[in-house]
Design a protein around this nucleic acid. Structure first.
Lengths: 201, 201
DNA sequence: ATTGTATTGGAATGATCGTTCCAATACAAT
DNA sequence: ATTGTATTGGAACGATCATTCCAATACAAT
């Protein structure tokens, strides 16, 4: 028989990714993955050595198909604080179209259930944090170049802070269906950033 | 035979709480709890109907023995922004004494692995968020009373933002052993709050 | 039509899961 | 010393876990 749903490896990982994202690594069983991907257990194990390895592939693919598209404005050349706002708007749109009680961020979800010794996973989560922080830092630097109010150290701190605020925002999005609260939160974050780098009226 | 480690129900829950906190609900098995609490499986099931119910007791106890002591300054009558700083310092001290790679916050850890239909758990997580937000709101209101720069709506938004920033901070603390980064992050958060409510030089 | 390569369904593995049950044991009260 | 009440260790339950294996099936290439 041919493969039912996904004849490409990418589509298989996409499907597994959605499942892990929604329910978490430990809750999802191989049976769940067979059902959700439509690919037989035999084929899953011929493509991936173990559930863990499939999960690693999902973490990698998450960067490609989820993070990159939405974070691209911030990572673009010459991006400024407006790019950060565009990124936040992007995230809000995703939350709104999910109709409340979103799935949050796969990385921060995983972070909360990881054991210190799972280095393969931890490395990927660290890379994600570094990527976000680096993107924010460059955008904030570009923005700060105009007025020069902040030192490089202050920019670094602000970039890191933005990263953890965004993570907190996405954790919270799992537990609420209050769209206006989410909008209010991103607004407040943005205003804090703006006040620091542009100064306040 | 008498109970080995804990002859009181409270001590039993404390021990289970630490285990759930560190490893997460799904990873911890009843065998783990038997080993960790030193109480037999039979006794565990005579005190609690199920693993879930024991976990609910842990969530409740978490408020008493973890949140209340550290959050008390913020909830105290007449608390201002300095109380928030004291709270953040408290959290930092806990992180430092854990020697890096902390356990984070039980609530935000649980949030990342909860399913929408687990209402018993979700209610407790919501109550926690509301508690933090209410505490911050009152402290910020008290502080704002002096200068009156912010409207009530702005205070509400800032309180909620503080809550999610703190949650993000604690999620992140699970994945880092960089104490200076944690200090830098709390400093930045505090400066953002201060700038909004007190104004900036 | 025939070969070769994927992919399948499904059984089977041994381990572990949460939970139940009970006879044996320990301790306090009498 | 005897009763009554907790608490124990440990077996047993059916279910599910990740993983392995294989004969049967399907499809592309020849």
């Amino acid at each position: 028989m041919p493969r039912a749903i996904s004849n490409t490896r990418a589509a298989l990982v996409d499907s597994a990714l959605r499942t892990f994202w929604k329910h978490g690594y430990h809750v999802v069983s191989m049976n769940d993955l067979v059902r959700e991907t439509g690919v037989s257990r035999s084929s899953l194990y011929s493509d991936f050595a173990s559930k863990q390895e499939l999960f690693h592939a999902c973490l990698d693919r998450y960067q490609e198909v989820v993070v990159t598209p939405v974070f691209a404005p911030v990572e673009a050349d010459g991006a400024g604080i407006d790019a950060i706002r565009a990124y936040l708007e992007n995230l809000l749109a995703k939350f709104d179209e999910s109709g409340g009680f979103g799935v949050g961020c796969l990385v921060s979800n995983t972070l909360a259930q990881i054991e210190p010794e799972e280095t393969e996973v931890r490395e990927r989560l660290d890379a994600h944090s570094r990527r976000l922080t680096a993107g924010f830092r460059q955008a904030l630097r570009n923005e700060n170049a105009e007025l020069g109010r902040l030192s490089n150290d202050e920019i670094d701190a602000l970039a890191r802070f933005t990263m953890i605020a965004v993570q907190g925002l996405w954790s919270y999005s799992r537990s609420t269906d209050d769209s206006s609260a989410m909008h209010q939160l991103t607004n407040t974050l943005f205003e804090c950033l703006e006040a620091r780098v542009r100064g306040r009226p």
